[in-house]
Design a binder for these strands. Sequence first.
DNA 1: GTGGTCTAGACCACC
DNA 2: GTGGTCTAGACCACG
Lengths: 118, 118, 118, 118
Amino acid sequence: MLIEIDFRDKRPIYEQIVGRIENLMIQGIIKPGDTIPSVRSLAMELSINPNTIQKAYSRLEKDGYIYSVSGRGSFASNISSLLPGKKQEVLDKLKDIVLEASDIGMEKDELIKYIGEM
Amino acid sequence: MLIEIDFRDKRPIYEQIVGRIENLMIQGIIKPGDTIPSVRSLAMELSINPNTIQKAYSRLEKDGYIYSVSGRGSFASNISSLLPGKKQEVLDKLKDIVLEASDIGMEKDELIKYIGEM
Amino acid sequence: MLIEIDFRDKRPIYEQIVGRIENLMIQGIIKPGDTIPSVRSLAMELSINPNTIQKAYSRLEKDGYIYSVSGRGSFASNISSLLPGKKQEVLDKLKDIVLEASDIGMEKDELIKYIGEM
Amino acid sequence: MLIEIDFRDKRPIYEQIVGRIENLMIQGIIKPGDTIPSVRSLAMELSINPNTIQKAYSRLEKDGYIYSVSGRGSFASNISSLLPGKKQEVLDKLKDIVLEASDIGMEKDELIKYIGEM
DNA sequence: GTGGTCTAGACCACC
DNA sequence: GTGGTCTAGACCACG
C-alpha cells in the first residue's frame, strides 16, 4: 500500500492523501503519465468515503499534480515546473524556523551544525 | 499594542495569543514576576470574547509560562527551565524541514548556505 | 439578492457562485474586508445544500479572493494582485477566438469593427 | 494523423472529434464529397470505443456536416450554407469576452490593439 | 467502469 | 453562531 492514512494525524484525511501523492510524485515513485488509483478503488482500499478521495484529487488537479478525465481515470502530470515553487516554500519555512530559534537565543551556527550532523 | 491578532491567520485566536505571550517572555520583554493583563481588559482591548482569552491563559498556566493568583491576577513565571524543551522543539521542526527539502532534491548545503546568507 | 443561481446553466452550482462572487469583487461591489454571507445563510437563501456553498467558498479562498476564519465568517481579500493574471486569461481567450475566426475566413478587421461598434 | 485526441482536454472525446472534423472541413482540408473514415477504422486508429466515434458522427450528421449512406460509409457535405451561423457564433463569443474584459477594467482599445498585434 | 456534482445529515473546534 | 471535515447515498455524462 503506497498510500496510508494515520487517523491520529491532526491533518484532515484528504490533506494527508494530497501530501502523500505529492510526495510519491516528487520522489519519482509515481511518474508523469502514470495512472492514479480510481476514486472508488482508493476509497475501498482505505475504507474511506469516495467523496473524501474526490476532494483530495480535486485539490491535486487544481494544483497541477494530476489531471482527471471523466470516464477514464486520473493521471500524473509532469510536475517539473512546480518544483521551483516548492523550493521557495521550503526556504520560507526554514526562514521562520531560524527566526524562531533566534528568539530563544539559538545562533545560526547551532542550527547549521545540527543540519550538518543529521 | 504588544499583542495583536491576525484574523487571516489559520491558527485559532487563543493559540495566537499563547504564542505571542510566550514570545514576549522568551525575548525578555515580559520578565518573571511581571503582571499579565487581566482577562477582561485584554478581551476589551482586542475586542475578543473573554472566553478566548481565558482559554489562552489556561494553556499558558498549564505549560508553566504564567501563574494565576485568584483575586490578584496573572503573573509571568521564570521560564528558564522551559528553554531546553523549546530548543528541542525547534530542532525537531528543523529536522522536518531538512527531510522535506531532501524529498524535492535540495541538498543540506543549499539550506546551510541560505541560513548563512540570511 | 446579489447572488442567484440559474438551474438551466450547464455550469455546476458551486462554479456559478464562484464566478458571481469573483465578479462582484472585481466590479467593486464587494470591497476588501467586506463580510461574505455565511455558508449556512447563503445556503438557506438559495435553497441549496451548505456543502455546495462550502465548496464554492473553499475554491474562492484557494484562489485568493476571500479568506475564511472558522467561527467568525468569510471576508473579501484585496484582489488587486490577482487582476494581471485575470487580464492574461482574457487575452488568451481572445486569441483563441481570433484563431477560430481566421479558420472560417473572418479577417481581424471584421472582428475589430465588431468590437468598435458594440 | 489528421485527428488526434487530447485526454487532458476537459471536453468529452466525441466533442473533440466533432470539433476537429468540423475544422478540417472549414479549412478545406476535407472537401465536399470526400469520404470520412469509417467508425470502426477511426476507433481502431485512435484506440477509442466505437460508440464514441458513432456519437461524434451522429452529431456531425445532425448538424449537416456529413451524411451517411448505409453500407457505403460517411461523406462530407457541402457546408457553405453553415458558415454564416458559425460566424455569428464566433461574434457571440467575442461579445462575451469583451464584456468580461470590461468587468476587469480593460478597455475595448486594449483588446483591439492586442488583436492588431497578433 | 470512470470522474464530478449534489443532498442530507452529522460532528468538530472555535468564538 | 461560524467554517471545516466526513459519511452515506444518489444521480449524471462519458466510455
